Amino acid sequence: MTTRFTAAIAALAILAGCASAADAPKVGDEAKDFELAALGGEMVKLSKLTASGPVVLVVLRGYPGYQCPLCTKQVGELIGKADEFKKAGAQVVLVYPGPADKLKEHAGEFVKGKDYPAHFTLVLDPDYTFTNAYGLRWNAKNETAYPSTFVVGTKRKVTFATVSKTHGGRAKTEEVLKAIPAK
């Protein structure tokens, strides 16, 4: 089997039963485990991260033909509060979805010139495997994913969830910080 065919089969297995934003994780749900490659190539697995503390999971729009200015602003605000996330013991995982072709290149453009703290990781979601599995695929012309933010506790329990059906309407950084479970 080719790698592409194997990846397609795996994606279909993950997607079974998960088709719309109504299926996105909600407060109290167990977040589905996933493993995605970071921009640097290292693999990031949710269950491994939550074993050591809470995770703030931010789903960006990726590259819908341009670098989303609202995503850029949101990530800037999160980085601006990096010390508070660190104090809370939280890892911040930024999901950058899109077609596999040129995804790494576009993600590289997104992070260019930004200084990411060690507890922030940008992961790639090629061909929307994660986005679809989480019910966050915004399947319209020039769209990629619903901008979303989740706080996932140590047992992968979702303690905060915001899914925006517009480009705006994103979770405020202060709300996210308040939703991080105490150590």
Score class of each variant (00 low, 15 high):
L124D: 05
T129W: 06
G53M: 11
T166L: 10
A8L: 13
E35N: 09
E42H: 14
A161S: 15
F150Q: 05
H119V: 07
L177D: 05
V56S: 03
Y66H: 13
E174T: 06
K112V: 08
V55D: 09
L94W: 09
E105G: 05
K26S: 10
A38E: 13
D29C: 03
A100P: 10
L36W: 09
A133Q: 13
P181F: 02
K155L: 07
G41T: 11
Y116C: 06
V152K: 03
A82C: 06
P97S: 04
A100V: 11
Q67H: 05
L94T: 11
I79P: 08
A88M: 03
D83I: 00
T154A: 13
V152F: 06
A24K: 08
K32Q: 14
G153V: 04
G17S: 05
A21K: 12
T121W: 02
F120T: 08
G62F: 06
R156T: 07
L124P: 09
M1G: 13
L122I: 15
A161I: 02
G62W: 00
T154N: 14
I180V: 12
A8S: 12
T50S: 11
P25Y: 04
E174P: 04
P25A: 07
F150K: 00
T2L: 11
I79M: 08
V92L: 02
P117K: 01
A179Y: 02
K141F: 14
E84L: 10
E109A: 14
K32L: 13
Y63I: 07
R61C: 04
V158E: 03
P64M: 04
E30Q: 13
D33Q: 10
K114I: 01
T50I: 10
V44S: 00
E109F: 09
K165M: 14
A38Q: 12
Q67G: 01
Y116G: 04
E77P: 00
F160G: 03
E77Q: 14
G53T: 13
A13D: 13
V59S: 04
E175A: 15
G113F: 05
G135V: 07
M43P: 07
E175R: 08
L46V: 13
D33Y: 03
V27C: 00
A118G: 02
T173Y: 06
T159C: 06
D127P: 11
G40A: 15
D83M: 01
T162S: 08
S20Q: 06
Q91G: 09
K48E: 15
E109I: 11
G89Y: 08
V123W: 00
H119E: 09
E42G: 11
E143S: 14
V92Q: 01
K155N: 15
D125S: 05
I14A: 11
G98V: 09
T3A: 12
V44Y: 09
K26G: 08
K73E: 05
V163M: 02
T149F: 01
A107L: 12
L78I: 02
K86V: 08
E175C: 03
K32E: 09
G65P: 03
T162D: 03
T159N: 02
G113D: 10
C68R: 06
V158N: 00
Q67L: 15
C18M: 11
V163S: 05
V56I: 14
G89T: 12
P181G: 08
A145K: 02
S148T: 15
